[in-house]
């Protein structure tokens, strides 16, 4: 593949890399796994790039390939052995004045989201990214009605996890 293509790809990926980071954050539990999935999503994006026609935005396309990799294509690699806690390593949380109760609730919420299954996580992720139900349904390959139904179930499930 030619250098120009590679250059334009890397440029756009670099700009939107947070999308991949956010997918990795939901689907992995430690820094090594995060990096490993990041790597795999990058490879899958690069492989699919020649077929990217620009019909959708680069970022929209990234959501799809990123989630497909996390849910379906990615095979956990065996080179991961470390169990390092990822919070301190992979990203920093900006220091801001936060209400203690809210902070605690948020922590519990993130933990609860991690307990969801792969499909539920994908729904939550797209919802958090402010995607509408049309895009959610197209990304997952289900109808809009079913996406809404599932989303309501996920909300209920989160409630149950938080208040057992």
């Amino acid at each position: 593949m030619n250098k120009e293509l590679e250059h334009s790809f890397v440029e756009q990926l670099q700009k939107h890399q947070n999308i991949i980071h956010k997918v990795c954050r939901l689907y992995t539990n430690n820094a090594d796994a995060h990096n490993d999935l990041f790597q795999e999503i990058t490879i899958q994006l690069w492989r699919a790039y020649p077929k990217f026609r620009g019909e959708s935005k680069f970022s929209t396309w990234m959501y799809r390939v990123g989630l497909n990799t996390a849910i379906t294509l990615y095979r956990k690699s065996k080179r991961r052995i470390s169990t390092q806690e990822f919070d301190n390593v992979q990203f920093k949380i900006k220091a801001e004045e936060y209400d203690d109760t809210e902070e605690r609730q948020l922590k519990l919420l993130y933990k609860a989201v991690h307990q969801l299954n792969d499909i539920e996580k994908a729904l939550v992720f797209l919802y958090l990214e402010d995607k509408d139900y049309r895009e959610i349904s197209e990304t997952l390959g289900i109808t809009e009605v079913n996406a809404r139904v599932k989303m309501n179930r996920v909300k209920k499930k989160l409630k149950t996890i938080l208040n057992p």
Partner: peptide
């Protein structure tokens, strides 16, 4: 709950490692 999470998520409080 999810709205609370969304509010936080959208704030982008998390700084990921930038490649």
């Amino acid at each position: 709950e999810l709205e609370l999470l969304k509010k936080d998520w959208q704030k982008g409080r998390i700084e990921f490692k930038s490649y």
